[in-house]
């Protein structure tokens, strides 16, 4: 009869999913609480990484490689999002010398 603590601590799919969930929540908190645009972008990257962990974990535990392909797509989107986000941040900084999220509403036209 195996020890219960060991059964709980033995790494399984659930452990990866919990890790991913906590990481995702941290990203959500970052987006909600921070004011700096760049930190918010970084929190979004954190969430995308959490999703990637889920994809890879499911792919590994179901023996199906499609999850890894999805991770590629997510990474591409993340890189694209970072590029545009940083370009916007540069625009805001150039006009207001500060990159607070509340200046975004002035970026019309």
């Amino acid at each position: 009869m195996p020890n219960t603590i060991d059964t709980i601590l033995k790494v399984s799919l659930n452990h990866y999913l919990v890790l991913s969930a906590v990481l995702f929540t941290l990203g959500v908190l970052g987006v909600l609480l921070r004011k700096n645009v760049i930190v918010i972008l970084m929190s979004i990257e954190l969430m995308l990484n959490a999703v990637n962990v889920t994809f890879i974990a499911f792919s590994r535990y179901s023996g199906n490689i499609d999850g890894q392909v999805m991770v590629f797509f997510v990474m591409t989107i993340a890189a694209a999002e970072a590029a545009v986000g940083l370009a916007l941040a540069v625009l805001i900084f150039r006009r207001f010398k500060e990159i607070n999220i509340r200046y975004f509403e002035h970026l019309r036209g």
Binding site: L41, I56, F72
Partner: peptide, 23 residues
């Protein structure tokens, strides 16, 4: 640790090596 070696390498190149350096 999930045996996804190639994706791990791409994660290093794309995220850690390019996106974060850009940030």
């Amino acid at each position: 640790s999930l045996d996804a070696w190639f994706v791990a390498g791409v994660q290093l190149i794309v995220y850690a090596g390019a996106v974060m350096v850009l940030f």
